[in-house]
Amino acid sequence: MTDKLKFKYTSVYINILIILIIILSSVFAEEISGYSPFEINFSGMSAPDSSHLCGTDFLGRDILGRTLIGGRISVIIGVLARLGSILFGLLIGLLIGLSGSRIKPLLNSVVEIFLAIPSLLLAMGLAVSLGEGYLTIVVSIIAGTWAPVAKFVSVQTNTVKKYDYVKSARVIGAGNLRVVSLYILPALLPLLLPLMTTGIATSIMLESTLSFLGLAGTASINTLPSWGQMIQEGSKFIFDAPWIILPPSIILTILILCFNSIGDKLVQDTI
């Protein structure tokens, strides 16, 4: 039995390990690559060789170092944006689930409206109107992704609040706050975990797409590179120097894949 349990989660552990490796290597990017990711070298683009393992980009910067350090932005923005959208969605979802017949239709249609606007288009619009910057990206991703969470939470709350143990708590005289924090939230949390991991994958993808489209701010020399932006820069030289876009593309896909697979595994278990 215990052996089976161990094997069941092997893939999850492997995925977590890969994510940790990506995070750690983004912290120690300079030490691993041996070059500063910001150091400009006017020799221009060079193909991978023994001194630059992944080659250099059009400003002669070391691609390995930039790719590794790019993980910082993706992971931080991905996790923060997802936390934000889960918290906001949870709040609205609980409100819908517990509110009376007056506010409920109103809140429900707000959720419906946000479900209807395609998330990338909404995020793009927000990125234009809020101006450039990391905070904008986080807010745009939250705006584009909170509605499904709210919908999910409201449906689940509706189910949970009809359970006998919640009803009996009500009978004893527990107020809304007590019922939510002691009875409903604990029932919802295990369901939110897979939502969190697949959601981080979605946020990372949205973040990279926004920065690929040039909406994450103009790339100045000193700012931390992000993968989307590196791919954008490299795409101009795709036929002359395909090595520029390959490392960030591959690591980005691997990171998203890891979060998605953890989410898939957890969904299989909770359902």
Partner: peptide, 9 residues
């Protein structure tokens, strides 16, 4: 899991 621009390239 592959972002669409990566697929494109």
């Amino acid at each position: 899991s592959t972002p669409i621009f990566v697929t494109c390239f």
